[in-house]
Write a protein that binds this DNA or RNA. Structure first.
Lengths: 206, 206
DNA sequence: TCCCAATTTTACCAATCGGTCAAGATTTTG
DNA sequence: CAAAATCTTGACCGATTGGTAAAATTGGGA
C-alpha cells in the first residue's frame, strides 16, 4: 500500500481518498488528540478496522493529510518574484492566499490546529523548508524597500500580516458566519478589496 | 461551590484558580475533545477526583475557562470611541490587541480552538454580544469614513484584519518561533510598528 | 466459472476515559 | 479542644479508544 513498487488498485485509490477527505474534516476540527479513528471511518463510510487496513496507525493518517497540504502552503509565497512589480506581486499574493482560504478552509484549519498543538509533526518543515523560503522572500521584500518601492517595514512581519489576514477567513469562518450574512463570494470579494487596498496603500511608495 | 450564597474558602479559591490555569493551558493546546481531566489535574498538581470535587464535569471546567476570557475579548473593541481621533483610536486598538496576545497567548489560542471546533459553547456569545458590538463599531468606522477621515473600506473587514494580524502572534507562536530568534519584546515591538504603520497608512486620509 | 488475492467485517484486547463513591485526612468553627 | 465541614484520594464503574487477528466476503484474472 505505501510500497512504491506495488500498484495501487482501484479500490485502494478510492478508499485512501475517502479516508484522507474524512480525516481532513475531522482533524481540522478536533485536532489530532480530539479525533478518533472511528469518527474518521464513519465519515469515510467504512469500519475502523477497514480504515486500519489502509493506514496502519492513526498517526499515519494524520501525517498523510498534513503532507497533502504542506506544499499548498509553500507555493504562493514561493511565487513572489523580485524582478517584478511589488504592487502586482503583493496583490497576487493576497489574492492567491484568499483563494486558498476560500477553496480549502479545512486545510487552513488543519495547519492552524497543528501549530497550536505545538507543531509536533511538522517542526522540521517549519525550521527547514518554510524558514528558508521565508528568509528568501524577506530578502525580496527588503530589496523592494531598498529600491524605494516599498515603505521601510519589517519584511517578516508584512508576511505574517498577509498570512494572518487571509487565513483568518478560513480559520475563523464560524465566527465570521455569526457576524455577517454575506454570501461566501461577497465575503471574499470584500475581503480581497479591503485587504489589498489597505496593505498596498500601507506599503507602497507613491 | 457554585452557590452564590456560600463563601469560597481559602482552599477553594486557591484550587479553583490552579485548575483554571491548568485547564487554560491544556484546552488551548488540545481543544476540548483532545484534553483529558487527568491532564488538567496533573498540571494543577492534584488528583482527577480532587479536581472533580471542585468542578462537577469536564464541561464545567471548560465553560469556566472560556467565560474567564470572553470579556477580555470584547473589551478592547468596546473602547473604540466615535468622538475621538480615528488615528489614535485605531493605533490604541492595535496596541491593546497586541498587548493581549503577548500577555495571554493561551487565551487567544483557546478562543481560536473553540471557533475552529465550530464554537459549540459560545454560539450565543458570537451571535449576541459580539455581533452587537461589532455592528456598533462598524458604525463608528463608517462614521469616520463618512466624515472623510478614513478611506472607504468595509468596516467589518478592517476589524477582521486587526483581529487576525494581532492574534496571529499568539495563535501561531510556534510557527513564529521557528522562523525568528527575536526576543518576545522585540517581536511585539516590530509587530506593533509594522501593523500600525501599514494599517494606518492604509486607511487614513491625509 | 473457479481460484486466489484483496478487501471487509467481526470479535477481541489492554489501556484510557469521564465520572462516582466512600473512607481517611485536614481544616475550620464555635 | 472537639466536632463539623471540607478536602483528598484510591478503588471502582461502564464506555470508549487505538489497535490486532481471524473469519467472511468481494474482486479480478486465467
Amino acid at each position: 500500500m505505501n510500497s512504491p513498487t506495488k500498484k495501487t488498485t482501484r479500490i485502494q485509490a478510492a478508499n485512501q481518498q475517502k479516508i484522507l477527505e474524512a480525516a481532513l474534516d475531522m482533524f481540522s476540527q478536533f485536532g489530532y488528540r480530539g479525533t478518533t479513528i472511528d469518527q474518521i471511518a464513519a465519515k469515510a463510510g467504512m469500519s475502523k478496522a477497514n480504515l486500519l487496513y489502509y493506514f496502519r496507525r492513526k498517526n499515519d493518517v494524520y501525517l498523510a493529510v498534513l503532507e497533502s497540504i504542506l506544499d499548498q502552503w509553500l507555493e504562493p509565497l514561493a511565487r513572489l518574484d523580485q524582478d517584478k512589480d511589488p504592487e502586482q506581486e503583493l496583490r497576487a499574493y493576497i489574492e492567491t492566499k484568499l483563494r486558498l482560504s476560500q477553496q480549502n478552509p479545512r486545510a487552513s484549519r488543519l495547519f492552524a490546529n497543528e501549530i497550536m498543538q505545538g507543531a509536533p509533526m511538522i517542526q522540521p518543515f517549519l525550521s527547514n523548508q518554510l524558514k528558508e523560503l521565508v528568509e528568501l522572500k524577506c530578502e525580496v521584500i527588503q530589496h523592494w524597500i531598498d529600491n524605494g518601492k516599498l515603505q521601510p517595514v519589517k519584511p517578516m512581519h508584512l508576511i505574517f500580516m498577509i498570512w494572518a489576514s487571509t487565513q483568518h477567513y478560513a480559520d475563523f469562518a464560524t465566527q465570521i458566519q455569526a457576524l455577517t450574512t454575506d454570501t461566501d463570494d461577497k465575503l471574499y470579494k470584500d475581503a480581497s478589496q479591503t485587504l489589498s487596498s489597505i496593505v498596498l496603500r500601507g506599503v507602497l511608495v507613491d
